[in-house]
Simulated assay, not measured.
Amino acid sequence: MRPGQRAERMGNQVERENSGAAPTGRTRVPRWARCRAGQWVPGGEGNAGRRWAWTRGRVLTAFAVLTAGLLAFHRAVPNSPGHLGSLLEVFLPWLGLVVVLLLGLALLRRSATALVALLLPTAAWTYHFGGLLLPGEESGPHDLVVVQHNVSDENTDPAGTARALTDAGPDLIALQELVAPALAVYEKTLAPDYPYHAVRGTVGLWSKHPLTDARLLDIRPQGVTEPWNRGLRAAVHTPHGEIAAYVAHLPSVRVGASGLASSSRDESAGLLGEAVAAEPLKTVLLLGDLNGTVDDRGLDPLTSRMDVARRGFAFSFPAALPLARIDQVMARSATVAHIRTLPATGSDHLPVTARITLR
């Protein structure tokens, strides 16, 4: 083909394209129906910024599936080294925020695949924690109201703290970190409404109902040589029968670069679980600062034997920005129907109150 003929042919092709005519031997695809592989394009190439794609968001999809796996199979995460499984379980409810973040990114990225994948962690979180968001059931005639509070050994207003706890109208009040001279203030302030009380070491129980057989509970982990009395057991004679009340303060845990340091806490939880298992009374209440959440496998010796709250998150620590509920109320042969926090006191913990339905 001569140069002149080639130029003439190219000119004719440009003229056909400008006039909207289809090239010879080809069918022109309407602009509104144009699409790329794997994409729905509602308005053609001019709407490229508004496309929803199945091929986008693969990283978001992977994170959604990973989050669902951690929620559903958190017990499969090994606890060694560094008690990583327990560390994950302490903050397990907060994976819901990860789901919300991934949802925002999926909408921003306009990834249909990621949105569908987010159904997995949403379902897992709802199954695990959704029931805690439901309103509490109506109180019944055989209910007890209890309050659990680590009052802090640095609390500068023990009298105000005691008055704040009585405002909830509980039948039982369990306290930890009781030290002199604050202990005398708690005893004096609570005495008018709670004539029965027992204190062993740094833990105590105040009751509207008579207490008997109060004794020290040995839950000291090995290696602790200094005075360490953080367990108490007493029988409470309620109008609905005799129950055993346990008050405990398990060892603290620390989060560091190597993970969660919780060996002493886990050992003490095991000793407490053995005491509960050996308790002859049918109904048992456990109130305490357990330095762990009910999802933490370190508290398995207790959660495997006792029921936990069915309603309410009640994050209690730290008081300034509560991230986890480490102040617990558990029961055997009774139901912890609902748990919630009370207003802040002079402690670094928030008080929690729970309604116990006796069976």
Rank of each mutant, 00 (worst) to 15 (best):
S263C: 01
G273A: 07
L105C: 13
G270D: 07
R9L: 15
T341E: 01
S139R: 12
T335Q: 12
G38S: 04
A7N: 06
G130T: 09
E226Q: 10
A277H: 06
P42Y: 03
E242V: 15
P251N: 13
R109G: 00
E8F: 00
V99W: 10
A277N: 06
S316K: 02
P158Y: 03
G49N: 08
A234H: 04
Y196G: 03
T166C: 00
A275P: 03
R2S: 15
A198D: 12
G44E: 07
S252M: 14
A164D: 02
V203C: 02
M330H: 09
L205D: 01
M330R: 01
A123D: 00
G96E: 12
P251S: 11
R36H: 11
V41N: 12
V284S: 10
E242A: 15
P301T: 11
A62M: 14
E187Q: 15
G82K: 05
Q148D: 09
L88Q: 10
G160Q: 08
M10W: 12
R16M: 13
V247E: 08
S258K: 14
A334K: 10
M330I: 06
D213Q: 13
T55V: 00
V224I: 15
A214Y: 00
T55M: 05
L108A: 14
G11E: 14
S139H: 03
E267H: 11
W52Q: 04
L178Y: 11
D266E: 15
Q13V: 13
R16K: 14
W32F: 03
T202E: 10
H349R: 05
L175C: 04
V147N: 03
V247R: 07
A344E: 07
R311V: 15
L299F: 10
R332E: 01
L321T: 02
A344S: 07
H349N: 07
A7F: 09
N229M: 06
P210C: 03
H149P: 04
D266Q: 12
E274D: 14
I339L: 06
H74T: 14
V147G: 03
N155D: 15
V100G: 02
E226D: 12
R230V: 05
R305D: 05
L132E: 07
R50C: 00
Y194W: 09
E45Y: 15
Q328R: 01
A354R: 07
L132P: 02
V329G: 02
V185T: 14
L97A: 13
I326A: 05
G49I: 06
R56N: 13
N150C: 04
L133A: 15
D296S: 13
G241F: 05
P30K: 04
V284R: 03
M306P: 09
V59G: 14
V99N: 11
L281P: 02
